[in-house]
Design a protein around this nucleic acid. Sequence first.
DNA 1: TTGACAGGTAACCATTTGGTTGCATATTAA
DNA 2: TTAATATGCAACCAAATGGTTACCTGTCAA
Lengths: 112, 112
Amino acid sequence: MTDDDAVFRALADGSRRQLLDRLRARDGQTLGQLCQGLAMTRQAVAKHLAILEEANLVAWHRQGREKLHFINPVPIHQIARRWVTQFDQPRLDALAALKERLEAPGTTDDIE
Amino acid sequence: MTDDDAVFRALADGSRRQLLDRLRARDGQTLGQLCQGLAMTRQAVAKHLAILEEANLVAWHRQGREKLHFINPVPIHQIARRWVTQFDQPRLDALAALKERLEAPGTTDDIE
DNA sequence: TTGACAGGTAACCATTTGGTTGCATATTAA
DNA sequence: TTAATATGCAACCAAATGGTTACCTGTCAA
């Protein structure tokens, strides 16, 4: 509950979901790149990114004077596991099992 | 964006997620029942339920002087479809296809 | 018919949120 | 070295949010 909260809050804002969309389209963008075309100041975008970082949805890496942002899909998957798959039992139980079997071989990341 | 927004906003609050949890545990509860044990006035709970209604996550039906609340899993599924399954392509594409076959009417447990 | 019960409505309040402006700092290029 | 570039930080602001109290309405049972 405590950890999900940051993710749900982060996803609650349309601008932040838009930022995630942009990163999903092209990962590793700088703050400046992420600002382009948005009707918002750079500082506002930076605040949104900070909230996404707090929710662990975005990580970054400094390169010179630039800050490269990377998306992290794990928290959303975790939430989906706890919320969507439970939502209508038991039809999706079989699905969850299948999902694990599908994702298991050769995958190293988001399945704990 | 416009329709998802209400759902994301509704899910952003912990009290509202708790209400959904309660309805998931037992569907069709009255306002009074949903208030029990919560550290919040009835009016506050009613406001939360109104927000869940706006997001189409909860529907209700009047029975005498009582208001029975029912959960609707569809919006969360829609969001999951648009967000989770897109999040790491293409590994989950096969999963989405399977999901549709699983969820198609008439299919129960016949996959294994 | 008259309370008691379930819920609705409205005014109000403190805090959070999403945004701004202004200025400071660090890195790169000329 | 100097100027432009990329980002950081802080103060401030309006509006939204989550909650309250107070009172009103409709329904059921005695």
